[in-house]
Amino acid sequence: MKIPALVLGILLILISTSGFAQNVKLKNLRNGDLIFVEAEQEHLSGAINRVTQRDTNSSFDHIGIIEYDQGNLFVLHASSKKGSIREGIKSFNQTQKKDQNNLVVYRLKEEYQSTIPKTITAAKLMLGKPYNWSYILNDSSLYCSDFIERAFRHAHIFQLEPMTFINPSTGKIDDFWKDFYQKQGLEVPEGELGCNPNGLAASDKIIKIGHLTL
Rank of each mutant, 00 (worst) to 15 (best):
S114V: 12
D139H: 09
H156D: 15
W133D: 12
P162G: 12
S114Y: 15
F147K: 05
T115H: 11
Y143L: 08
Q159F: 14
N132M: 05
Q113E: 13
G128H: 09
S141E: 13
S141F: 04
T170R: 05
K118T: 09
D139F: 04
Q113L: 12
H156W: 06
S145A: 03
E161K: 15
E149M: 07
L127G: 07
T121V: 14
L125T: 11
R153I: 14
D139E: 13
F152N: 05
E149R: 11
K118Q: 14
Y131R: 02
T119F: 00
F165S: 08
S140D: 13
T119D: 05
G171L: 11
S169L: 12
P117E: 02
S140Q: 14
N167S: 04
I116H: 08
P168W: 06
S114P: 10
F176D: 10
A123K: 04
D139K: 14
Q159E: 15
I120S: 02
R153H: 11
K118N: 08
W177P: 06
Y112W: 15
H154R: 03
Y131I: 02
L127N: 09
L160Y: 14
F158M: 08
E161N: 12
F147A: 01
I116W: 11
S141V: 01
W133M: 09
W133L: 06
S141M: 06
E161C: 07
I148G: 01
C144Y: 01
D139P: 05
F176V: 11
D179V: 14
K172M: 09
I148P: 03
K118C: 00
L142Q: 05
H154K: 02
N167A: 01
P162R: 10
A155R: 13
G171T: 09
T119M: 08
D146A: 01
L125V: 04
D174T: 07
S140P: 06
M126D: 09
R153F: 07
P117S: 02
I136W: 01
M163T: 02
P168L: 05
K178D: 05
T170E: 11
T115Y: 13
D146K: 03
D139G: 04
Y143N: 09
A151L: 02
T121C: 02
Q159M: 12
Q159C: 12
W133K: 10
M126G: 02
K129D: 02
F180T: 04
Q113T: 10
R150A: 07
I148V: 13
F152L: 03
D146R: 02
T119R: 06
D175N: 13
F147I: 08
